[in-house]
Every structure is written in structure tokens, then in C-alpha cells.
Amino acid sequence: MTHLRMILLVGLALAAPAAFGDEAHTWLLRMNQASRSLNYSGTFVYQSQGRIETSRIVHLVDASGEHERLETLDGPLREVIRHNEDVQCFLPQDRIVVTDKAVLGRQPGRLITKPATLSEFYSIRLGVQERVAGRDAQQILLEPRDEMRYGHQLWIDVASGLLLKATMLNEHAGTLEQFAFSEVFPGGNIDHEKLKPSVLKTGEWRVINARGVELRPEDLEWSFRKLPPGFRGVSWVKRSVRRGDASTIHAVFSDGLANVSVFIEAAAGSLAGATQSGPVSTGSTGVYRRLVGDRLVTVLGEVPLGALRRIAEGVERRAK
């Protein structure tokens, strides 16, 4: 690859101005590359609806793949240790560990979202250059082209390509939530010791497996007829969401930026009357519910309520 790149670099140098006509797209690609290939460590702050949470992250790439450790700095300690798609989450206060497979590890081919595709549903353009976390950053603006999704603003580190700050905006340009590094160190050597959980892993712990059973979309008895433009299915699993019911269907749809989950389950017991709709108080995530026969459909995601309603109304049982 190295020599090939060298050859192509020489041959394509003159083509560069035209190729980078849409510089914002290039920044997104670069950000994407940096996020998965760079070592980095840092502290970041998340804000939503007046609440603030601070966390520390360490990310290392070596011959065996990606390693990541994340810990919360406010409130009870929670730690996440990831090696590629294998995830362990530690709750030392309760002596609980959760094991999971990152969903992406099971579906590597479904992750590609090209800027060219995104630009069909978002207007993508360059913003200003300003400092974030003491570093020069390029702002990228993604404005929705319809009312089916929220807007985003990103600040990308000029030196490394890492995402330094991100905001999600509602239809009135109000900030729904914001993430920002307060301190970040891209590149450099990271000691593997920093990727180990800090908790003492002795004694008795409760272990919980959060993995679901993957489904094939063609095997579902359900269709989703009113997905907003650009949304496509990325995950179908059968999982436990409520006590005593391991048969809830969980489908995930994405336009590349926003995700929407659709849960379909038996509307029995306490769920029988749960047909109200409306947002929940979680900042940018809304919920919409609908009864379809004897099934309760719950639609949830980081999109406007109108999009949730539309998706819910399009959930139908397939004709046999």
C-alpha cells in the first residue's frame, strides 16, 4: 500500500484542487480515519438539559486491534474496557460486570456511511476555524435537508483529525446536547496498563450477558413502510428488554448520523395500556408508541417526534 500510494500521489497531484472542491467531505473522511487509527487519551464533558458529565477515554491501536478504556469521573465509577468488539463494563460499586459484543463487530459491512450519501440528507459545509481544548479546530456544519432529522456541528482537530467537539441542534437551532474534549492528547505512546480496569477484580462479581440473538430481516413478520428518506436497516436482534420476555424484536435504522430503534413485543400485562406517545426527558432522544394488534411498537431515537411518529405508523405485520 505504501508504494502504491507513492505512485498515485505523484500521478494525482495535479488533480488535487478539483478533488478537494468539497473540503468539508474530506474533513469528515479524515476525522473518520483518525478516530479508528490514532492512539489518543483525553477528558471530555457532555452537556444536555443543564446536566454535565465528565469522562476520561484512552484509545490504543496495536497489532491485535483496538483497545479502549472509558471511565466516568463524576458520580459512581463506571468503566468500559473494549478490545475490538468484545466489551466488558464494570460497575465496581455493585460488583457487576456486563459482557457484550459491539454490534458493529457482527455487521462490519453495514457501517460505511459516505459523505456523498450523507449529503443527500444533510447540507455539509465548512464553518469557522477556532480553538477547542487548546487546539486549532475546523468546524463542519451538517444541516438537515428535511424535518426528519436534527442538525450537527463538529469541530475537528486540524493536526490529528480527531473529533474535538460536537453539538446536536433542534429545528430552532437550539442545542440539544453537546460533547467537547476539555483536554486531549492525540498520537504518542500509550501504556497498556492504562487500558486495564482500575477496579480490583477479585471476590464475587455478578456477570450479565447483554447480547441478543441476531435475526435476518427477511425472516421478520413485520415490515417498516414509512422510513424517512435515507434511513436503512442496520441491525435486527431478538433480545430481552423486559423481565420475562426474551422475544422482543429490536430493529435499528440509521441515516448515517441518526439512529432509530423499533421494538416490537407482546402487549401483555402492564404493557397492555402503554399506548401513550410523547418524548421522554433524555435531551435528544424521543419515544413514540403504537399498538398494532396484540403487539406494542415502541419507536425511539435521536430524531424529531414527527419522524418517530411516521416510522411507528409504518410498522405493519406482513401479509402471509
Binding site: 469528515l28 476525522m31 473518520n32 478516530s35 454490534v103 458493529l104 455487521q107 453495514r110 457501517l111 456511511t113 451538517l142 450537527h152 463538529l154 473529533l163 460536537a166 446536536m168 460533547f179 442496520v234 441491525s235 436482534v237 429490536h250 435499528v252 440509521s254 448515517g256 448520523l257 441518526a258 439512529n259 430503534s261
Partner: peptide
């Protein structure tokens, strides 16, 4: 289960 959330 969220996927493809590269930006934020």
C-alpha cells in the same frame, strides 16, 4: 445498538 454515528 447504535451504529453509524461517526460524527457525534
Amino acid at each position: 445498538s447504535a451504529v453509524g454515528v461517526p460524527m457525534a
